[in-house]
């Protein structure tokens, strides 16, 4: 196959996924807003617009910035197609991106390459199907039974330590998939810088921790990329 066919193929893929990604995401948004509206209408509790607005504004104070910042932070990792999957299903850092990284490492493709993009979308589809079936089965149908079976100490541990249990492994997996020593070291140093130097000085930037770490890692990896990457350009100072 020629590069041209490959380019056309990827353009077609980007177009289809963007169009249907947006349509399905908008449909989800609609359903998830109709649900509470219908409930308010059906119950006849005299719930006023002001009550809902007040409650939402209180929630917005905690989460609105994150809702705006997270999509931007994850875009460089996910790419256009996977954005519409990931921000619909959620569980991005703890489930979908790990699934994509595992699949890329299994198949042996690099993140950001054409093959890498297709593999990551397929992996996220796999994770999405597991997500949907497992929730429907174990929460939707067997929920109350599961609730009685699982001892509280186990639920408590799962709730408290699930993130560290996933993240440590996924970082190692990501490093093994990307296979570049400098960006790996820069990622660790940038994170230390953001978490223990920048955020303590500017606590207001709390919601931007991921965005900042990603930005600093990219900048450091680019400006300090060493000479084997591209020897023509002299290495610029950071």
């Amino acid at each position: 196959m020629t590069t041209q066919t490959a380019d056309t193929a990827m353009n077609g893929f980007e177009k289809t996924t963007a169009r249907w990604g947006r349509i399905t995401m908008a449909a989800t948004l609609l359903v998830s807003w109709i649900a509470p509206l219908g409930l308010i209408w059906m119950t006849d509790f005299d719930i006023s617009f002001t009550m809902v607005l007040t409650a939402y504004l209180a929630v917005a104070a905690v989460y609105l910035i994150l809702a705006v910042v997270e999509p931007v932070s994850f875009f460089p990792v996910l790419g256009q197609a996977a954005m519409y999957q990931a921000f619909m299903i959620g569980n991005i850092a703890n489930k979908l991106v790990p699934a994509a990284v595992v699949a890329q490492s299994r198949v042996g493709v690099k993140p950001g390459s054409r093959q890498g993009d297709l593999v990551s979308v397929m992996a996220i589809c796999g994770a999405a199907i597991v997500h949907v079936t497992s929730l429907l089965l174990f929460v939707g149908i067997l929920g109350t039974w599961v609730l009685r079976q699982v001892p509280e100490e186990i639920t408590e541990v799962a709730q408290t330590y699930i993130l560290p249990a996933i993240l440590g492994a996924v970082f190692v997996q990501a490093a093994a998939t990307v296979k570049q020593i400098r960006p790996t070291i820069f990622a660790i140093l940038s994170s230390l810088l953001v978490l223990f130097v920048i955020l303590p000085i500017f606590p207001a930037l709390g919601a931007f921790n991921i965005a900042l770490a990603v930005l600093v890692t990219i900048l450091a990896s680019w400006f300090l990329r060493g000479t084997n990457g591209e020897a023509r350009k002299p290495t610029a100072g950071a």
Partner: peptide, 12 residues
């Protein structure tokens, strides 16, 4: 993409 991936999981 690679650098961003590492950045996300390092900071988390």
């Amino acid at each position: 993409p690679g650098a961003a991936l590492l950045g996300v999981f390092a900071v988390l």
